[in-house]
Design a protein around this nucleic acid. Structure first.
Lengths: 117, 117
DNA sequence: GCTGCCTGCTAAGTGTACCAAGCACCTGGG
DNA sequence: CCCAGGTGCTTGGTACACTTAGCAGGCAGC
């Protein structure tokens, strides 16, 4: 029953977001005002960052703190599976997407989650 | 400029809420699964509780975790780009997607909308 | 009186979040 | 060749979040 399991998920999430933003470990560590070794350890799931560090990382990546807290399992309260529908509905509501693009995104998404409704 | 100032505010807030709920220190500590001496110290502003403890306390008092995080100054600002980021946020939050899949979806999405941040 | 149970607090210890320094590996110039 | 500057990771240490054991005082009943 290692508590590190969902922790590792958080680390992977952070690393993914960092690479998505094209930032090096040191760059993000600097932006988030933490040391680079520590960030490395967090990304590999060795340590669980405090809420403040989480908030700093979120800010450095231009993401909302809520997103990170949810990912860290700290804010879950209502872990409804509406998360699934949230993706599709927000895609449908996005005015910047053409109908064809919405269709493509939703197909890709459904392919990933295995939805078949 | 003591950093403990807003901390003390949090402690007082917790104590007020606890008394409002007619709970003894030990009762709340038990509900929140922390030791009673620790809760005592938190309420007097000696220590800053971790996000998980905060969440447990919030749950024990039947209050929202957001309320506590705000009170702790962890969640304040950034209520801005919510709407614009709805698609990306919901993708990131979807528990059924692997990090790689999220990455792919977001890349596709950004390609569509021409985002470049 | 003294038990026993409640209240909150203190003391001392353990685990871990976090940091500074530095290592090992690449890649690109001189 | 070798130094410069980039990448991520390891080590050793400090600070603090959090624990268990125990203290002092207030109020019941015996």
């Amino acid at each position: 029953m290692n508590d590190r399991d969902h922790l590792k998920g958080l680390g992977e999430f952070i690393r993914t977001q960092r690479e998505l933003a094209n930032l090096s470990l040191r760059q993000l560590a600097d932006l988030a005002k933490v040391s680079n070794p520590y960030l490395s350890q967090v990304e590999r799931g060795l340590y669980k960052p405090s809420a403040e560090v989480l908030k700093q990382i979120a800010k450095a990546l231009h993401l909302s703190a809520e997103t990170f807290f949810h990912q860290a399992g700290l804010l879950d309260e209502d872990v409804r599976n509406e998360a699934a529908d949230a993706v599709e509905s927000s895609i449908k509501l996005d005015p910047r997407l053409t109908p064809e693009q919405k269709d493509t995104l939703i197909r890709v998404y459904r392919g990933f989650v295995g939805a078949d409704r």
